[in-house]
């Protein structure tokens, strides 16, 4: 049973990791806790659901899944960029508190807007119809199609992002702006555009996390971003906020801690365990699991 819980934990951890990356990238660059990130994820879930529901059931499942992923990322990027443009950019350079409050406001606007649009109703994601109900069982450990999809997509995205960050000129620019905005600007890096791209990348990952979460949980509602956003924030801090590999690691660690906690301590303590793990890790390693010498490097 522990092995099964590890599978559960890794799957959940993948979703946390995808979300935590967006948190971490934006924080690493702007020292802004983007509390609208969870709601950007929720938008992705609804956009993906809409794509699945709108396409005829006769189409092959992979076409519908792919359109859902594309729609989710596109919608989340659009909303994420709107948050950057209207809730963050006008307040850049006015301290840390004002943008934080403004982003919290954006979060409320997005969430309440979706509540109005959906009338508060949740939507069911027809996971079995898309992915079948088959599952691989190896030595008593069950892995079904949706888990494989979540883990597969996450691993692919994490590897691509890691490569982008370390090997491409865009990655270098992102790291440069995160390191020192003024110095980056002085050497000709278009800071504004790099910030926009960072928001877009983070939102895209959140959108993918949204539709994957929808497929995995099978139900989505306008409120889903709140809890997930909070967990992703914990994961980002756990891994060392501002650090991309740290965010991925933090997400996986948090997912594992929750699922193993349910198995070993009891379901009533699921959330408690997550936060105890956070406190213990921060006591031992105040900069998170993975931290560079400066404590923040993208």
């Amino acid at each position: 049973m522990l092995a099964q819980q590890i599978v559960n934990g890794l799957t959940l951890g993948c979703l946390y990791a995808l979300m935590a990356l967006g948190y971490s990238m934006v924080y690493g660059m702007l020292q802004l806790l983007n509390f609208a990130h969870g709601d950007v994820m929720m938008i992705g879930a609804f956009a993906g659901w809409t794509a699945i529901a709108a396409l005829p059931a006769g189409l092959p499942a992979w076409t519908r899944l792919l359109s859902a992923l594309v729609a989710a990322s596109a919608a989340s990027v659009a909303v994420g960029l709107a948050v950057e443009r209207y809730a963050y950019r006008p307040l850049r350079g006015s301290g840390r508190l004002a943008p934080l409050i403004s982003v919290l406001g954006a979060s409320i606007v997005i969430r309440s807007g979706m509540a109005l649009i959906t009338g508060g109703r949740s939507k069911a994601v027809p996971t079995p119809a898309l992915l079948g109900s088959g599952q691989l069982a190896v030595a008593g450990i069950r892995v079904d199609a949706v888990r494989m999809l979540v883990v597969g997509v996450t691993v692919a995205l994490l590897l691509a992002l890691d490569f982008m960050s370390r090997r491409t000129s865009l990655g270098r620019r992102i790291r440069a702006v995160a390191e020192d905005q003024e110095a980056a600007a002085a050497t000709g890096v278009p800071v504004d555009r790099v910030i926009t791209v960072t928001f877009a990348l983070g939102s895209c990952l959140a959108g993918v996390a949204g539709i994957l979460a929808g497929l995995y949980f099978t139900q989505i509602d306008f409120y889903m971003g709140f809890g997930m956003g909070l967990k992703a924030f914990v994961a980002a801090v756990l891994g060392g906020i501002g650090h991309m590999r740290g965010a991925a690691l933090g997400g996986l660690a948090l997912g594992l801690a929750e699922c193993l906690g349910v198995a070993l301590v009891g379901p009533v303590y699921k959330d408690l365990i997550a936060f105890v793990v956070l406190i213990v890790v921060l006591l031992l390693r105040p900069r998170g699991l993975v931290a560079g010498p400066s404590g923040r490097s993208a």
Binding site: N8, L12, Q219, E258, K270
Partner: peptide, 8 residues
């Protein structure tokens, strides 16, 4: 606000 019940 839990929607993941795999562990439970």
């Amino acid at each position: 606000d839990d929607r993941d019940f795999a562990s439970l």
